[in-house]
């Protein structure tokens, strides 16, 4: 399996799992007021400032079959997670949490409370309010969040190397493959891979920016 396939599979899984999580957490943080909110927000943002290798190190500890948590994980998945694709997905989720929560929290936070209240007064239940009123106004946040998670997962290196190792066809992603090729002085392959990532990332960002401008015009 090509590193591209591994990378895209990882990015897709991460995005699909993180979008609903980010939506729930972002909504909760935007609307709820509670003690210790700053703690929760800091914890979620932590992967943004922590070196990926540090996160990778702690994940290795958690996954280690010698540890209590690793034992649980092994029982749950039927195998140790270190150097496996599921392990890589979990690591990727942890690293990308801030990219999932932050845009959603911003999108929900910009919804006026009065508008949601008007929906309730009009007889719309919480779930109907979410579907008819909230969702159509936060899709910018969803799109932004998805793009960030997807592109960031494609580019992730440190955590992937530590937790996934570098197993051909299973955990070798594009960014690792580039590193490998450079190590082996195969600059041409590294160049192709790099150019592909560059084009894809640029295109993804363009899609987000253009849809933001379009929605500004129509709203």
């Amino acid at each position: 399996m090509s590193p591209f396939f591994v990378s895209f599979k990882l990015a897709l899984w991460t995005t699909l799992i993180l979008l609903p999580v980010g939506m729930l957490l972002g909504r909760w943080l935007a609307f709820a007021q509670f003690k210790g909110k700053a703690w929760v927000e800091s914890l979620i943002l932590l992967p943004l400032v922590l070196p990926p290798t540090v996160i990778g190190y702690y994940l290795l500890l958690v996954f280690s079959p010698d540890s209590f948590s690793g034992n649980l994980v092994t029982q749950w998945f039927g195998q140790p997670l270190v150097f496996t694709f599921p392990g890589l997905v979990i690591a990727s989720i942890v690293v990308n949490l801030p990219f999932a929560v932050q845009p959603m929290q911003l999108a929900y936070g910009s919804l006026p409370q009065e508008v949601r209240e008007a929906a309730w007064v009009s007889g719309l239940s919480s779930s109907k309010t979410w579907w008819h009123i909230e969702l159509p106004q936060i899709w910018q946040g969803i799109l932004g969040s998805a793009t960030l998670i997807f592109s960031h997962t494609l580019g992730e290196f440190g955590v992937v190397l530590l937790v996934g190792g570098n197993i051909e066809g299973r955990t070798r992603t594009v960014s690792i493959a580039i590193y490998d090729h450079v190590q082996a002085f195969d600059m041409l392959s590294a160049g192709w891979y790099s150019a592909a990532l560059l084009v894809f990332s640029l295109a993804a960002l363009m899609v987000v920016r253009m849809s933001a401008q379009k929605s500004k015009r129509t709203h």
């Binding site: 006026p112 009065e114 209240e117 008007a118 309730w120 007064v121 007889g123 009123i133 709203h219």
Partner: peptide
């Protein structure tokens, strides 16, 4: 609940559904 009371309310800043 607010939904069951069936009141009509006009808010200070209208609170129209923008979309």
């Amino acid at each position: 609940t607010v939904q069951q009371r069936q009141v009509g309310m006009v808010f200070q800043h209208y609170a129209l559904f923008p979309h």
